[in-house]
């Protein structure tokens, strides 16, 4: 069996777990500890940890099959941390999420976060849908998503300049 990982990074983490909600908090703490190696700024570490938590929560909510994968990569060349979360989902869910990212990109990050905050309390039966806006504004991350139609897997990626 080959153990796959990406070389030439300042740190590479690849975790796959069953989407049990209770694992999200310990994964966030693990990511924050992982980032402490080669990174000094606690604020940046916290931003990535919070984003990991928010993306894992989304993946947990919308996963149609058990299993969530998360990759964290610290670039050796640029001052960048890349966070990717993968889960199986429906085409409809994937399209909804990608549309949300498209909508978010048209706004100033603070204005959009405030707009989403106000929207989130209008229908409390639904999930808050604040996570992406939070990562976008508080984490100042560049967010994108890719849906593999054949595999039915969505990847949500957040890039942080640290």
């Amino acid at each position: 069996m080959e153990i796959k990982y990406q070389r030439n990074t300042n740190g590479y983490l690849d975790i796959t777990f069953h989407p049990k909600w209770d694992y999200i908090a310990i994964t966030r703490l693990y990511v924050e500890n992982f980032l402490l190696i080669n990174m000094a700024d606690k604020e940046n570490i916290h931003k990535v940890g919070t984003a990991a938590s928010e993306l894992l929560e989304n993946a947990n909510k919308f996963s149609i099959e058990n299993g969530i994968r998360m990759i964290v990569k610290k670039s050796k060349v640029d001052k960048i941390v890349l966070l990717s979360v993968f889960n199986k989902t429906t085409k409809e869910n994937a399209e909804k999420l990608m549309k949300r990212i498209e909508e978010m990109d048209k706004w100033d990050s603070l204005d959009y976060y405030i707009y989403r905050m106000k929207e989130s309390v209008k229908n409390k039966k639904e999930s808050s849908q604040l996570g992406l806006a939070r990562i976008n504004h508080e984490g100042q991350a560049q967010i994108s998503a890719f849906f593999d139609k054949e595999e039915g897997v969505i990847e949500v990626k957040a890039i942080f300049c640290i």
Binding site: A25, R28, T50, S53, E54, E57, M117, K118, S120, V121, K124, S127, S128, L130, G131, R134
Partner: peptide
């Protein structure tokens, strides 16, 4: 720590 669902409660 406060997740976004918790932030919504403060909102």
């Amino acid at each position: 720590f406060l997740n976004s669902a918790g932030i919504r409660e403060l909102v």
